[in-house]
Amino acid sequence: MSEHESWTDARLLEAVADRDRRALEVLYARHAPWLVIRLTRRCADPALVDEAVQDTFVAVWRTARTWRGKGEVAAWIWGIGIRRLLDQLRRRPAVPLPAYDQVMVSAEEQVLLGIEYGELGQAMGRLSPELRAVVQATVLDGLTTREAGRLLGIPAGTVKTRMMRAKALLREELV
C-alpha cells in the first residue's frame, strides 16, 4: 500500500478522481500542513481553519474530476482552501482579523524577498498595511474583489479603491 507515497501529486489527484481513498490520504498528508499554516495567517481562529481544511479535502474528493491536469496541484488546493475559509468566515462573522503588523525586515530577508518578487516585493514592503493586505488578497491569494472584501472584512468597493491606490503607488516605486 506504500506505493501511493511515491506517486506525484498529479497522479494522486487522478487516482482520487477514480475514488481511490488511499490517494486522498496521501494527498492530505502532503498538503494539509502547509494549508493549515497558510490559512492561519489569514484567520487566527484555529477552529475555523480546521473546518476550512476539512471542507477543502472533502471538496478535493468530490471535485478531483474537474482538475484539468495543468499547473500545480498545490495551487489548485489553495484555491479551494481559501474559498472554504471564506465560507467559514461568512457563516461566523465575528472573527479576529488577520494581524498585519509591521515587522522589521532584516537585510538578509530583503535579499530573499527579491528572489520571488524582485523589486515588486520590496515595493510592496513599503505599502501601508491596509493597501498591502488588499494586494495580498487579490494578487497573491487569487481572490476576487468581493472575496477579498469578505476576507478582510471591508466592502468590495473599498477593496477596489485601495487596489487602485496600491497600483498607483507601486507604479511610482517601480518606474
Partner: peptide, 9 residues
C-alpha cells in the same frame, strides 16, 4: 483486509 484504496468504489 487491504481495501482502503477502493473503499469509495
Amino acid at each position: 483486509v487491504g481495501l482502503t484504496s477502493v473503499s469509495g468504489k
